[in-house]
Amino acid sequence: MAQTVGTAPIRLLALGDSLTAGYGLARGEGFAPRLQQALVAAGRQVRVIDAGVSGDTMAGGSARLDWAMAERPQAAIVALGANDGLRGLPPGRMAEALESILARLEARGVPVLLAGMLAPPNLGADYGRAFEAVYKDAAAKRPGLLFYPFFLEGVAAQRGLNQADNIHPNPAGVAELVRRILPVTEQLLDRVPSVAAG
C-alpha cells in the first residue's frame, strides 16, 4: 500500500553493522541507500536512516540506540549480530542486548523488522544453535515483530556476490539482499500508524 501523495517520507532506521553501513563500497552503494532506492521505485515515500557502524556488536547497537532515536524513526530494521558471531561472544549477552533494543523500540511504538544472522560454522554446532536461538526466541516473544531469519540469505558464501574477504557483499550482493528483504520491508512500512490509517 503506497503512502498518500504529499505526506512526509517515513523515517526508517537501519540499525546495523558493516553489512548495513556498506563497508568497502562506494557512497550510495550500501544497503541503506539501495534499500531506499528500491522502496521509492516501489512507490514508497521513505527515508532510510543509515545507523550502521562497522565492527559493532549487538551490545554496541544497544548502547547507541538512544542516539539513533534522535532521528525519530517511525519504523526500524534491526540487523546486528554478525560481529558477535565472528568474535564468538556469548549468545546470552547478545540476547540481553537484543531484548533491550526491542523493548525500547516497542515502548516508543516503533514497528520492527528483526533480521537474523547465523554464526560461522567453525564455532561448532552447539554455539550455532544457541546463536540462532537468540533471534528465534526474541521473535517468538513478540508476535507483532516481523522476522527475517537470515539477513545474508542468498548472498552468504556466494563468491560472485561478495568482496574479496568473502564476508561483505559487493554491489551485486547488496542488490540481492535488497531484492530479498524488500517485500517484508514493505510489510513493515504498512505497520507505521500514519500509513495504516491512510
Results as ranks from 00 to 15, higher is better:
Met1Tyr: 14
Met1Leu: 12
Met1Ile: 07
Ala2His: 13
Gln3Lys: 11
Val5Glu: 15
Val5Pro: 15
Thr7Trp: 06
Pro9Cys: 10
Arg11His: 11
Gly16Arg: 11
Asp17Leu: 09
Asp17Val: 03
Leu19Asn: 07
Ala21Lys: 00
Tyr23Leu: 12
Gly24Lys: 07
Ala26His: 12
Arg27Asn: 11
Arg27Trp: 14
Gly28Gln: 00
Pro33Arg: 11
Pro33Ala: 12
Gln36Ile: 10
Val40Ser: 03
Val40Trp: 06
Ala41His: 07
Ala41Val: 07
Ala42Gly: 00
Gly43Lys: 11
Gly43Leu: 12
Arg44Ala: 01
Arg44Met: 01
Gln45Ala: 13
Val46Gly: 00
Val46Lys: 05
Asp50Trp: 11
Gly52His: 14
Gly52Gln: 12
Val53Phe: 12
Ser54His: 03
Asp56Pro: 02
Thr57Leu: 14
Met58Ile: 15
Asp66Glu: 15
Trp67Gly: 03
Ala68Gly: 08
Glu71Asn: 05
Arg72Trp: 04
Pro73Phe: 09
Ala75Cys: 01
Val78Gln: 05
Ala79Asn: 01
Gly81Pro: 04
Asn83Cys: 08
Asn83Tyr: 14
Asn83Gln: 13
Arg87Glu: 06
Leu89Ser: 05
Leu89Trp: 07
Ala95Lys: 09
Glu96His: 09
Leu98Cys: 04
Ser100Pro: 02
Ile101Lys: 07
Leu102His: 07
Arg104Val: 07
Leu105Met: 05
Glu106Phe: 09
Arg108Lys: 03
Val110Cys: 01
Val110Met: 02
Leu114Gly: 00
Gly116Leu: 09
Ala119Arg: 02
Pro121Ser: 05
Asn122Ile: 11
Gly124Phe: 13
Asp126Pro: 00
Tyr127Val: 02
Arg129Ser: 03
Ala130Tyr: 10
Glu132Phe: 10
Glu132Arg: 15
Val134Gly: 03
Val134Ile: 07
Tyr135Asn: 10
Asp137Thr: 15
Ala140Phe: 10
Leu146Glu: 05
Phe147Met: 03
Phe150His: 07
Phe150Glu: 06
Leu152Glu: 01
Gly154Asp: 08
Gln163Cys: 00
Ala164Met: 01
Ile167Tyr: 07
His168Arg: 09
Pro169Ala: 13
Asn170Pro: 02
Pro171Met: 08
Ala172Leu: 15
Leu177Ile: 09
Leu177Tyr: 09
Arg179Gly: 00
Leu182Gln: 14
Leu182Glu: 11
Val184Asn: 03
Thr185Val: 15
Gln187Val: 13
Gln187Trp: 08
Leu188Trp: 11
Asp190Val: 03
Asp190Gln: 14
Val192Arg: 02
Ser194Pro: 01
Val195Leu: 15
Ala196Glu: 03
Ala196Val: 06
